[in-house]
């Protein structure tokens, strides 16, 4: 268990290569957008990061349900891993989004459904981590964490819907008729770059996820050994 499995080592290298390839595609392959210019290039990684954040969010909610149903510690470790990764990637998505929004919307931030939902998600994740920090008993920590991710998983879609009742300005670039403010139609090269970025970040997500779950398992073993040493 101390040595990284071969498949994981392969994934490490593959992720690095893929990210480099995606960067190359964003910079050299994708054409310059006519109206927005260079700043539009942030869009590819922005979408990919938000996608990974979503993956983590869904994984966390399901891990919560699985833990409550089975009481298997494995699901608790999966849940924490998903939350931590999702927290970071949503933060990157928010930061890249702001970089894009400032020249295009003329503001760093607006209370649009997606932006607000992303911000609320970050708050829920931080609350989740604070909650776990305040509990020593590992069993209770896992139970409370699972209940809280479940509550968050139900509340966040409602938050999204409730803000959607206001008007939105966030562009729906993929499969949406409404362009929003700063929407644009993509050329095939742009589409390729975007889908490739999403694929790349999915691989990065799997790699990080694997590392984090492995770390969780090791931490659990350390805790067990400590308890044994104290007896």
């Amino acid at each position: 268990m101390t040595e990284q499995p071969v498949a994981l080592k392969v994934l490490n290298g593959l992720s690095a290569l893929l990210v480099a390839a995606a960067l190359w595609m964003v910079v050299f392959y994708a054409p310059l957008e006519a109206v927005m210019g260079l700043v539009q290039k942030v869009f590819y990684f922005h979408v990919a990061n938000a996608w990974v954040g979503m993956l983590g969010f869904i994984a966390a909610a399901f891990a919560g349900i699985a833990y409550l149903a089975t009481k298997d510690v494995k699901w608790d470790i999966v849940g924490v891993a998903a939350v931590e990764i999702s927290l970071v990637f949503f933060f990157i998505a928010i930061a890249t989004g702001s970089i894009w929004a400032y020249p295009v919307w003329n503001t760093w931030w607006t209370w649009d459904p997606r932006l607000t939902t992303a911000a609320v998600l970050e708050m829920i994740y931080l609350a989740y981590l604070l909650l776990r920090q305040g509990i020593e008993d590992p069993d209770r920590r896992a139970r409370f964490g699972a209940v809280y991710t479940l509550l968050g998983g139900l509340s966040v879609p409602l938050t999204f819907m409730s803000i959607r009742l206001f008007r939105t300005i966030h562009p729906v670039v993929v499969g949406g008729g409404n362009g929003g403010e700063g929407g644009f139609s993509m050329t095939p090269a742009m589409l390729n770059t975007m889908f490739f970025s999403i694929f790349v970040f999915s691989v990065v997500f799997i790699t990080l996820f694997w590392h984090r779950v492995r770390l969780g398992r090791l931490a659990q073993r350390v805790e067990e050994l400590k308890l044994k040493a104290m007896d």
Binding site: L126, G134, V147, T159
Partner: peptide, 28 residues
């Protein structure tokens, strides 16, 4: 959530932090 936060080390400080992000739909 109060039943949860009362069993943690930080107790009453934690409740609003846990509660507010989850009740945002109600507030809106």
């Amino acid at each position: 959530l109060a039943a949860m936060s009362v069993q943690t080390r930080t107790r009453d400080v934690l409740l609003p932090i846990l509660l507010f992000p989850v009740v945002i739909p109600v507030a809106i």
